[in-house]
Design a protein around this nucleic acid. Structure first.
Lengths: 128, 128
DNA sequence: TTGAAGTTCTACGTCGCGTAGAAAACAACG
DNA sequence: CGTTGTTTTCTACGCGACGTAGAACTTCAA
């Protein structure tokens, strides 16, 4: 239950962008930004999204546990539950988790990371 | 375009099981095994699958590039294109690939692998 | 030739997702 | 308090993916 649709991803991108800054996003902000980002992408030229469309997507993302909504304030505030990096790492674990031979998968996996990434990994694993 | 449905996964599990042994799978084999494995799972008790059902799934998996079909022999032979481990590792790369800050994701990722897996990674990364 | 096994084509129901209208809830203003 | 503009909820349609399978065509063996 992890994969995102195109619009869902566009919205998450916005929310993730504001995650570090702990930005409280209102629907209006998101609508404007989403219309720009999503509409600007290939195949979606000039497509002005309806307010309810973004709302629906936000609700679905909330149900999926990716978005948290503060209902206290009147224009509700929407924000990503976790950072993009955390989410992606978690996704990787989900993918890996479904494998019987995790170590074999890891072997293949690190066989195709860039050298700089391998270096990063060495540093992070360094001190046992 | 990577995620698999429940039945698709069940079939892939069978094909992956035979991948190492380079086993050539006929439809009959798969039908029998799938009915056992899939039907035995939770929520699918005693569900006897139709031959065409498995065939359809195999066709879809073929279209997705996960299954290869030898059309030479009369009962066609079906087999997984790559091992489960390779496929899973590739999936992990797909997930990782969509991240702007790959190294940050990797940091989170290795932060939550088991110690034995970390050990394996150290070995694999050991000598640059 | 005939029949069983295998394969192709087509299709239906469900569900997730993009999309949005209708209506209800609400806040602010006169 | 009633009118009005904003925000949220409810409901729904179309499409594509997937589980499921019937109907019909192909092929091989007896």
């Amino acid at each position: 239950m992890a994969s995102l649709g195109e619009l869902e991803r566009a919205v998450m991108d916005l929310l993730w962008a504001g995650h570090e800054a702990a930005t409280a996003n209102t629907l209006r902000d998101l609508l404007a930004q989403t219309t720009a980002a999503h509409g600007g992408a290939a195949g979606h030229e000039g497509k002005d999204l309806a307010v309810t469309t973004v709302l629906t997507v936000l609700s679905r993302l909330e149900k999926k546990g990716l978005v948290e909504r503060e209902r206290g304030m009147r224009p509700h505030r929407y924000q990503a539950v976790s950072s993009r990096e955390d989410h992606t790492a978690e996704l990787m674990h989900e993918v890996l988790g479904s494998a019987p031979d995790r170590e074999a998968v890891l072997a293949r996996f690190i066989g195709s990371v860039t050298e700089s990434e391998a270096e990063t990994l060495r540093k992070l694993l360094g001190h046992s």
